[in-house]
């Protein structure tokens, strides 16, 4: 009974979160003494799909049906359920990203599977029970979950379990799945993406700013830092609420959760609700003029100082570093 991994590329190329999910799937498969099958809905080329062998995929099944060009969580879940039945798979792995969050719970209902949403480590088997850790209370705690049901679904939190390279031969095969017109219920009319910007949810570095920036006109230096570092920009909730910045940038307990390698907080106090969305970051840098700001307690590095003086100097220093000086 193979392990299935759902891998959705970004514009035809796989990225880190895909490799993480495939490698994770391979490690779960090793635990269960079985193979790792990746499912592709995008009609990608053999070469692109075979590259997943480097992360442990033994076979990629390509489901080529035009209906799947339209993202519909229900339809994707229906097809994955059919694939799982055809291939006799009882375990399915997703990345806990936008599409994983949409499809995995629908599939859990269809497969009658226990589902752990947002795993942060490799599972351990105890008999037929699978035990896995996940973050709970918005990162303020970790829970050890057990999946008791025969069918199991895991969505892996990006940037928590590093992908491992292997030397694996991987083959590609097409799979026919019948889709009826009534299987597709949600129709995508328009896709709007900010071009050239780094996506916040999977950025390695995030530069975030708060009310200490005083007004939207002062974001130039924040964006400059993000440009120099190849980072995404984020903000605290009040900044989004008063429309200094778009809602998509709001991180925290009631916004986006991010777990970059580096999170730089400029003029943000570090309220508990803000920390809840960023405390999974590997390294946190805080720049704040108030030495008592609570964010310093959650930080790895800090500068006590005025952002309007420190950030321009720091940007120059980052620039020199990037130029190799």
């Amino acid at each position: 009974m193979p392990v299935l991994v759902f891998a959705e590329s970004a514009n035809g190329t796989f990225k880190k979160s895909n490799f993480e999910a495939v490698s994770y799937g391979a490690r779960v498969a090793a635990l269960l003494n079985t193979e790792t099958f990746v499912i592709d809905f995008e009609n990608l080329s053999d070469d692109v799909l075979k590259s997943l062998g480097d992360y442990g995929a033994t076979k990629v099944y390509r489901v080529t049906n035009d209906a799947l060009k339209n993202f519909d969580a229900g339809l994707h879940a229906k097809v994955l359920n059919d694939v799982a039945q055809k291939l006799n798979a009882t375990t399915v792995i997703f990345s806990f990203n936008y599409s994983g969050k949409a499809i995995a719970p629908v599939l859990a209902a269809k497969m009658n599977a226990g589902y752990v949403a947002g795993a942060i480590d490799i599972p351990v088997m105890e008999g037929s029970t699978m035990k896995i850790r996940k973050n709970v209370f918005s990162g303020k705690a970790i829970a050890l979950y057990a999946i008791h049901s025969d069918n199991k679904i895991i969505a892996l939190t990006p940037n928590t379990v590093a992908p491992e390279k292997t030397e694996n031969k991987c083959s590609v095969e097409n799979l026919e799945i019948a889709i009826k017109a009534t299987d597709s219920k949600v129709k995508v009319k328009e896709v709007v993406k900010a071009s050239g910007k780094i996506t916040l949810s999977d950025a390695d570095i995030v530069v975030s700013a708060g009310r200490g920036l005083k007004g939207p006109e002062n974001w130039g230096m924040v964006e400059e830092m993000a440009n120099i570092l190849g980072a995404a920009t984020a903000c605290s909730r009040p900044v989004a609420d008063i429309h200094w910045r778009p809602h998509e940038e709001h991180v925290g307990q009631t916004g986006l959760t991010v777990r970059p390698n580096l999170y730089i907080a400029l003029g943000i106090s570090g309220a508990i609700q803000h920390l809840a969305g960023v405390n999974g970051s590997k390294v946190i840098v805080v720049i704040n003029k108030d030495p008592e700001a609570p964010f310093f307690k959650a930080a790895d590095y800090g500068i006590v100082g005025d952002v309007f003086e420190v950030v321009p100097k720091l940007n120059e220093a980052f620039k020199r570093f990037k130029a190799g000086a």
């Binding site: 589902y115 979950y145 405390n279 790895d300 500068i303 420190v310 100097k313």
Partner: peptide, 26 residues
């Protein structure tokens, strides 16, 4: 049916403390 359950909880590792850098030495 019984699908999943939580066996135990733990708190994340605390940060070891912030290393402060002078604003004059970015």
């Amino acid at each position: 049916e019984n699908y999943t359950s939580i066996l135990s909880y733990e708190l994340p590792k605390e940060k070891t403390g912030v290393k402060l850098v002078s604003a004059d030495n970015v």
